[in-house]
Amino acid sequence: MNARLLRLDRRSISTTQVLAKNQAGKYRSTPNRTQLLTYEMAARPHHIGVKKSWLTWHTQNLEEFRNQQPLMVAQDQIIRRFMRGFFPNNVVIQGEEIVIKRRGNVIIIAGFLQYSQRFDIRRIYWMYGFVEEFLSNLLKQPVKLEMQFVESEADLAYNYV
């Protein structure tokens, strides 16, 4: 019993110094500098609003506008997951850099897509039409896609670490 109490005491009182350092959103360097960083990845989290911008744009985080914060988060997730699932061969950086903008009642999905191995422009147009209409009917507000196309992810490289 005593030994257990003693162990509990030791674990309760930490004697090491607190690591007061932000580790999130930082990428480890590799020996051969092979880790690709896009501009979004290269800029640190504390640079949001300074060097880089937000990946979702809405007014629900503003004071006195916080009516539907959870709805925005849920909508964002639906949109991001849908884009990742619908364009699996075209998304870049695992679809983590899709920007969702809300302007009036319209949701604008922006970002980069890459040419897939089978680059069929007509197919892309079909998918565009499908995504816009599907998400519009699902979220009950107009959804527009404003994507730009790059040949491969390497075209988005800002730095290698």
Partner: peptide, 14 residues
């Protein structure tokens, strides 16, 4: 081709 492809995508979703 592209115009019709986009419209047919929309019709499929609809």
């Amino acid at each position: 081709n592209y115009y019709l492809a986009k419209e047919l995508g929309r019709r499929a979703a609809r």
